[in-house]
Amino acid sequence: MAGPGSSQQTSSSNWRQIVTSLYPDALTLTYCVPPVNFNKVPYVRGTVPGTGHSALVLHPPSGAAPVHNVPPVSQRPVPPSRYSLLTQEPDPQAIPDNVQESDLRDDFAQNHMMVNLQELGKSRPEAMFILSQLSFSSYLNQPAYAAAAAQLPRPSQLDTKKTKYSDGEADFVLIHRQHGILIGELKSVGKSQACSQNPQPPADADVAKRVTKAVKQLDRSETVVRHLVSDVSPGLTVRKALFLPYVSTEQLERVLDNDPQLKQAVCRSLGAGSAAAASQLCCCSDQLSQPASYWHGTPAVLSQLSTWWQHRMACSVYTLLTDDKYLDIVARFVGPATTVSVPCYNGVRVEVRTAGQAVAELGRRLALLVLTLQQLDLMNRNPQLVCLTGPPGTG
């Protein structure tokens, strides 16, 4: 009779085959999982005045002025159990009542960072997986694979009365075949100032507050990730970085120099010897595209980002993972036993692993008329004289 080790080897082999079928060039190219970022802040259904047509409107943050024709959460009807994918409405029970401005900023920053990392991956034909919004509670949680997962390291094994590691989430986890793993913690501090008509840097106190929290989250994520890959590659290099798209490297260095306790914590976490060295290991606004047009990268921006990447991942000794070990690690995080879901507020879990699945889900969502709060409010004003302009083909 085959023992547990034989069963585990069989499961690993099957998972590797599934991963290579989903990502045929996994050993040579970069993949993002999910391939695009789906916002966490939901849309709610409103009515376009004078037409009788419904439209999806971005959920207003708590305390914001009410928007016409958008009922409060408590008054939204529960959708029927069976309905067309193109007409389904968000489930009122799944939509949070306390959407904050910070949630909108975080969605924007997540998209901003994701686009830049995707461009970095395209420019470097190397084996790498860029995982975003990785929830540890979704790791190896598929019931059909419970028997195989029970033999592997899991986040819940680290849980204590004070800390429940299995409830955590990592903003970004980059798995590189040559460089190991990079964990990135994203903070959107400074986004509002950066996107204003007169861009200004955020207050140093705000930056210090967010960085303090980010370091704790990085250390926690590192503990979990090291544990999860300990049986595959115990000595695998795991690096960390702060992602601060609206804070300059110069400001971050100044903030650290002015707060000795924070500087010590950041230097310890990142393995740096000074505030200047620690700041250079973080990905800041200097290395990223402009917030107002973050989807339009330039060769200069890509060059800066590539320089940061090489500096952050520099190591005196490189350990090239074998094909099987690299695919084993990838399969743990994006394979069939782990749920790779995206935010969805219709009561149905949506998994998006590949570009094809992302296109299908985006098409489903874009089939609905989507308006911003400002657009819907404008259409409700009297007199309703509105001139819409745009390039050909935009409808």
Rank of each mutant, 00 (worst) to 15 (best):
H311K: 11
H311M: 12
H311Q: 13
H311F: 12
H311Y: 14
R312Q: 15
R312F: 04
R312N: 10
R312E: 14
R312I: 07
R312S: 13
R312K: 11
R312W: 01
M313P: 10
M313N: 08
A314S: 14
A314P: 10
A314Y: 15
A314V: 11
A314N: 14
C315S: 14
C315D: 14
C315F: 03
C315G: 08
C315N: 14
C315A: 14
C315H: 12
C315I: 02
S316N: 13
S316L: 11
S316D: 15
S316G: 12
S316T: 12
V317K: 08
V317A: 09
Y318I: 11
Y318F: 10
Y318M: 10
T319S: 07
T319W: 06
T319Y: 08
T319A: 06
T319F: 09
T319R: 09
T319I: 03
L320D: 13
L320M: 11
L320W: 09
L321D: 07
L321Y: 04
L321N: 05
L321V: 07
L321S: 03
L321A: 05
T322W: 03
T322K: 02
T322C: 05
D323H: 08
D323L: 04
D323E: 15
D323K: 03
D324T: 15
D324E: 15
D324A: 14
D324R: 08
D324N: 11
D324V: 13
K325V: 00
K325R: 13
K325S: 09
K325I: 04
K325G: 00
Y326M: 00
Y326S: 04
Y326T: 04
Y326D: 04
L327P: 07
L327I: 15
L327K: 02
D328K: 02
D328L: 01
D328C: 04
D328W: 00
D328Y: 03
D328R: 03
I329C: 00
I329L: 06
I329T: 00
I329R: 01
I329F: 02
V330Y: 00
V330E: 04
V330P: 03
V330I: 11
V330A: 05
V330G: 02
V330L: 04
V330F: 01
V330N: 01
A331W: 03
A331R: 03
A331Q: 05
A331E: 11
R332H: 15
R332M: 12
F333N: 09
F333T: 02
F333V: 02
V334W: 03
V334A: 14
V334K: 05
G335W: 03
G335S: 09
G335F: 04
G335M: 05
P336V: 06
P336C: 07
P336S: 12
A337M: 06
A337Y: 03
A337D: 13
T338M: 05
T338L: 05
T339E: 11
T339I: 13
T339D: 11
T339G: 05
T339K: 11
T339A: 12
T339Q: 09
V340P: 07
V340H: 05
V340R: 11
